[in-house]
Amino acid sequence: MSRARVVFGFGAPHGITEGPALVRAARQADRAGLDHLSLSDHPYFGARLDAYAAVGFVLGRTERLAALANVTNLPTRPAPMLARTVTSLMALSGGRVVLGVGAGGLWDRIAQLGVPRLSPGEAVEAFEEAIVLIRKLCGGGPPVTHEGRYYQVHELEAAPVPAPPVWTGSVGPKSLAATGRVADGWIPGHAADWLSERYRTSRPVIDEAAAAVGRDPGEIRTVFNLPGAITDRPLTAPRDEAGRWRGGSVQQWIEELTGAVLEHDAAGFTLFAAGHGPTDEVSLGRWAEEIAPAVREAVAAQML
């Protein structure tokens, strides 16, 4: 039995004054062999770095690390322009981009940017249409004409660059089904993990929608946002009373994540500090140099 490589990433500093810390963390992760860096995309907050400006800057200061907006605030970044942004980043970085996308949630704040407000149902429709159009505008081929409900382009050249992998932050049943039809990966919302009710009820929606359009559900990877502390000593209760992962020692993390891969088909993990904040330097080192290699080794041993 073969299994795709498990990916490990981390939540990076995103404050407008945290540029030096962001670069230090990115370069540390790059040297240590992590797979990706994650930045939130909330352009209505003036105290935060613009996600795509930061992604481009980080890619220019690293050699192997991929970067993604977790997840792109799609209503504020129209699909044709987002396609141009990600294909440019793909070309400049040698393909080190993941396109994380979401339908948009904080509509009161989104509307402050002058973006027309959509109903939840309309936002999901626009989200799926955007992914389809972005794929059309990647990989070369003839000029693209797209007459959709939310996007229209006429004889627009496609970039001669492959589309990046698309991971969604889908939560509701309609957006989960869209993920099954058109995406490559899923980041469960609200930092839900593999033992959560949200995961147990949501992943089958993705799988059924994928199968309905002739896709292999196993090709849609689940990459978990995972807040938690990496402690010097084992915790007696690495999960809280509600069953959410709190963290623990390096060995507790290794055992938990290995089980998540082997028993629950986890394809990757993005570490955040407890409270969903950026990862500190010490934890990032333990994550990259101790936990990730050990989990990969344990998974590989089981696959022999």
Rank of each mutant, 00 (worst) to 15 (best):
A4V: 09
V6M: 12
G9V: 01
A12M: 13
A25P: 00
A26R: 02
Q28M: 14
D30G: 04
H36I: 09
S40R: 11
D41R: 02
D50A: 15
V58E: 10
L59R: 09
L68V: 05
T76D: 12
P78K: 10
P80W: 14
A83G: 09
A83T: 05
A83Y: 04
L92D: 03
G94P: 00
D108T: 10
G114T: 03
P116T: 06
A123S: 15
V124H: 02
A130E: 07
I131E: 09
V132D: 13
K136C: 09
K136S: 11
L137I: 00
C138R: 02
G141D: 00
P143S: 00
T145D: 07
H146I: 09
H146G: 09
R149M: 13
H154K: 14
A158S: 10
V161E: 03
V161K: 03
P162I: 04
V171G: 10
A177V: 02
A178I: 02
G180V: 03
R181S: 08
R181G: 06
H190D: 07
W194N: 08
R198A: 12
Y199C: 00
E208G: 04
A211W: 07
P217D: 06
G218S: 08
I220G: 06
T222A: 15
L226R: 13
P227Q: 05
G228L: 03
T231A: 02
R233A: 14
R233I: 02
R233G: 04
A237C: 09
E241Y: 13
E241G: 15
R244D: 15
S249R: 09
T258M: 13
A260Y: 01
A260I: 01
V261G: 11
L262H: 14
G277N: 07
T279W: 01
D280L: 01
E281P: 05
E281T: 12
S283D: 12
E289Q: 14
E290K: 10
E290A: 10
E290L: 12
I291T: 11
A292R: 11
R296Q: 09
M303I: 15
